[in-house]
């Protein structure tokens, strides 16, 4: 079965979504990532969506689920590289991606992950949409 590869970089996991995912592939990624976070005791997940041409409610829900799941497993998720047209469309669609942190590119996403996983336990405000 087709799968999206998950790269391991120390205590972080890195995923680059490069294909127009059909729904099952998105579900598989969600499951694989959850298992990988637990298995490697990952502290952070970086998802690069710069090649994604759309994010619909299904993919949006998957991304929000991954973020929520990673928090339960004591890891942070950062989404990087969302194209401006995709961001504009997401807002109009009505998706706010609650709990999903974003960064402009892989580099600043990694910095954010490092900062998040080094800072002590956060409070209530954690998870509010930023940027």
């Amino acid at each position: 079965m087709e799968r999206i590869p998950i790269l391991r970089m120390g205590s972080f996991l890195l995923v680059t979504i490069q294909v127009d995912m059909h729904d099952q592939l998105a579900m598989t990624l969600q499951d694989d990532l959850t298992s990988a976070i637990a298995k490697f005791e990952a502290r952070g997940v970086l998802i690069d969506i710069s090649s994604l041409e759309i994010v619909d409610s299904f993919i949006g829900r998957m991304l929000a689920n991954i973020a929520a799941m990673s928090r339960i497993l004591d890891a942070h998720t950062v989404l990087v590289g969302m194209q401006p047209a995709v961001a504009i469309t997401l807002v109009e669609l009505g998706m706010s991606l609650p709990g999903v942190r974003t960064a402009l590119n892989v580099e600043s996403g990694m910095e954010l992950l490092h900062a998040l996983s080094e800072s002590p336990e956060e409070t209530e405000a954690d998870g509010a949409a930023e940027n």
Binding site: D56, Q83, A85, I88
Partner: peptide, 17 residues
């Protein structure tokens, strides 16, 4: 425009699903 294309394709995805 790219933004319009993105909106149309996103609506297509929702309605097709």
């Amino acid at each position: 425009s790219l933004v319009d294309q993105t909106k149309i394709v996103t609506a297509t995805s929702e309605l097709a699903r």
